[in-house]
């Protein structure tokens, strides 16, 4: 049976049934009963206005104008509470994407490196699909947050400014850091001196024996770098805050640190014993990542929050507004 030739009653019945399926159970029958009667009345009204007899085409036209059952059912629902507020959708999407990407970045190389012939299928069924726990967790947490917002709405507290003094230095903490750094350097130097000068063939001496080439060329650079850092820390502590110059020196030193660590790594072994050198290489590599991340974070945090739009700057001939 074609839709056009179907009876108006049947079309309306089918339409209302479709709407009802999308409604909460307790509302279904009541809304369906009313909607069917109203649609019949609308249809009769239209037929009377147009001087026509009721037919399938006219009914279909009415129902399509009324809206898709999905949309109509949605209109019957009270205005819901958004699980993810509009101002959080971007962050939610980023967190989801980054979380999945990080997991895949770890699991995919492992799967490729396994050398198994069917690694794609195995990876997809384990690490691939498995990473989707992350968006599930995020959705669950946002649902809990939405429930809390609904149950205990914010009491419209007045906004308070969050004034951050970016130049502030916690002197006791910095002093503690300086003492720890000096102790670490002292320990390292003492260990190097002891391992180099000792004549005893003990396991400890073998484990911590430094490569002669490292001690001759790279170690002095490391010591110089540490010395400059300690001077910088001392200046910052004595001034009690970061200044533009000390910040720039700090950024420069961090960049220099990465270059120096890379140079140490690629210029040969640090320790004589492979059992010590292997972990040392791993630690130094990790240190490069940490320093780069810290540098990136500092640069990101220190950027201008509000800057002059290009067209405004152009009107001022590049002069500050």
């Amino acid at each position: 049976m074609s839709v056009q030739s179907a009876k108006p009653d049947d079309l309306i019945e089918a339409y209302v049934t479709d709407v009802m399926k999308r409604l909460p159970m307790r509302q279904r029958n009541d809304v369906g009963f009313e909607l069917r009667a109203l649609l019949m009345e609308e249809l009769s009204g239209r037929a009377a206005d147009g001087g026509r007899l009721l037919d399938g085409a006219m009914t279909l036209e009415l129902l399509r104008a009324f809206g898709h059952p999905d949309d109509v059912a949605a209109r019957y629902h009270p205005v819901g509470i958004p699980v993810i507020p509009a101002n959080g959708t971007r962050m939610f999407a980023w967190l989801t994407f980054v979380g999945i990407a990080l997991q895949w970045a770890v699991s995919l190389p492992t799967a490729i490196g396994s050398g198994e012939p069917n690694w794609v299928g195995r990876w997809w069924l384990t690490g691939g699909l498995g990473a989707l726990w992350w968006p599930g967790l995020l959705v669950t947490l946002t649902m809990i947050a939405a429930f809390i917002r609904q149950r205990w709405p914010a009491k419209g507290e007045a906004w308070s400014p969050k004034l951050v003094d970016r130049g502030y230095v916690n002197r006791p903490l910095f002093l503690l850091g300086l003492v720890a750094a000096l102790a670490g350097i002292g320990l390292w130097v003492a260990l190097a001196w002891w391992a180099t000068t000792t004549t005893a063939d003990t396991p400890l001496a073998r484990v911590f024996a430094f490569e002669a080439d490292f001690l001759a060329t790279r170690a002095p650079v490391v010591l110089l770098y540490w010395a400059i850092n300690i001077v910088l820390m001392g200046v910052v502590i004595s001034e009690g805050r970061w200044r533009r110059l000390t910040r720039r020196i700090d950024v420069g030193l961090k960049l220099a640190c990465c270059i120096m660590l890379a140079w140490i790594l690629f210029s040969g072994n640090v320790f004589v014993a492979e059992t010590t050198n292997g972990p040392a290489v791993g630690i130094l590599s990790l240190l490069i990542v940490v320093v780069l991340a810290d540098l990136g974070w500092k640069l990101w945090r220190g950027r201008k929050q509000i800057y002059v739009p290009k067209d405004v700057a152009a009107q001022h001939g590049g002069r500050p507004c």
Binding site: Q27, E34, A65, F66, D71, Y76
Partner: peptide, 12 residues
């Protein structure tokens, strides 16, 4: 007012 808008509105 479109019927698809008005009837659900009454319920809401």
């Amino acid at each position: 007012i479109e019927e698809g808008t008005l009837y659900p509105l009454l319920r809401r």
